[in-house]
Simulated scan of single mutants.
Amino acid sequence: MGYQNSIFKQILQSIPRYEFEKSVRKHNGDFASKGFTCWEQFVSMIFAQLSGQTGLRGIETTMESMRQSLYHLGVKQVKRSTLSYANNNRSSMIYENVFSGLLEKILSMERRHKHKFKNPLYSIDATTIDLCLSLFPWADFRKRKGGIKLNMKLDHKGYIPTFISMTTAKIHELKSLKEMQFNPGDVITFDRGYTDFKLFATYCSKGIYFVTRQKKNADYAVVERKDVSSYKNISSDQTIIMEGYYTRKKCPLKLRRIRSKDPETGKYIVILTNNFVWSPTTISAIYKDRWQIEIFLKPNLSDFHV
């Protein structure tokens, strides 16, 4: 059987080898490499990330089981002790330069999101990274668990992060959202964990559109219902005002409530937005596209082949 390009090799082909080796030479990365080059280290760590490995032993074992494919990736047998030494002693600037070069290349391209409107679209989300509490006591999260929280703003034009912050896991992600900068006309989408009606009122006053899920216990009153018979998978499109005393005090404005059905799962979700112009199917598609940040933060490519 002839050799076929694997998914992993196709991913690695996006890395310009000339630029990579140029960065290696600049930082003297392969000095005293003992047969384990910077490229081999890079491939090993990319493999570990994409396959969901959590330790050096897992990297060594899994790559050993695929040794026949490693030749085509420019990698020989990987020992965990060698990889550990390289991770501890080689300059991270080698790989930072490679990343910067790739980012510059992507940003220079003409990019746009997949929706018809031209407004910038951003997704907001956070993920918690577990830490060993005995090694990082400052990151105490639960009784026997430590962690940090990675907060991100993802630009849907190329799905590139434009804002990243890191806090201890105890700090609510809403604090990070309040630190992010947006411009009039921007569209931002996030899950209901970011619900803050005072912040929603601020977005309304600045001409910033938000799309999120409404909480199940929301207290509201319907002031207008629109005909949705011409829309597939849309069961209602309503204009509402919030009824709760404190909620209405924070946000005395009208909002839009859309009930949408996921055609794949058959489940309904209730979407809350301050955009009264676009069709309910467009608003629904915006929230569905929020899944891209979930994929970005929590990749699960453990089944891909080398």
Results as ranks from 00 to 15, higher is better:
residue 180 M to Q: 09
residue 207 G to C: 08
residue 277 V to F: 10
residue 49 Q to F: 12
residue 125 D to Y: 04
residue 181 Q to V: 12
residue 211 V to M: 09
residue 38 C to V: 03
residue 232 K to C: 14
residue 215 K to N: 10
residue 14 S to I: 09
residue 281 T to W: 04
residue 255 L to F: 09
residue 214 Q to W: 07
residue 198 K to F: 10
residue 217 N to H: 06
residue 168 T to S: 05
residue 79 K to R: 12
residue 74 G to N: 01
residue 171 I to S: 07
residue 154 L to N: 05
residue 207 G to R: 02
residue 182 F to R: 08
residue 107 L to W: 08
residue 145 K to M: 08
residue 81 S to E: 13
residue 261 K to I: 12
residue 258 I to Y: 02
residue 105 K to Q: 14
residue 218 A to F: 09
residue 117 F to L: 08
residue 196 D to Y: 11
residue 166 M to P: 01
residue 220 Y to V: 06
residue 266 G to H: 03
residue 219 D to Y: 08
residue 189 T to S: 15
residue 164 I to Q: 07
residue 222 V to N: 12
residue 240 I to F: 07
residue 269 I to R: 08
residue 84 S to H: 05
residue 107 L to A: 10
residue 149 K to I: 03
residue 224 E to Y: 14
residue 163 F to S: 13
residue 290 R to W: 13
residue 40 E to N: 03
residue 143 K to A: 11
residue 60 E to Q: 14
residue 293 I to A: 09
residue 104 E to T: 13
residue 26 K to W: 01
residue 32 A to M: 13
residue 190 F to G: 12
residue 1 M to H: 07
residue 200 F to M: 11
residue 26 K to Q: 05
residue 143 K to Y: 08
residue 72 H to Q: 09
residue 123 S to L: 07
residue 285 A to Q: 08
residue 277 V to Q: 13
residue 176 S to W: 00
residue 104 E to V: 09
residue 249 K to M: 13
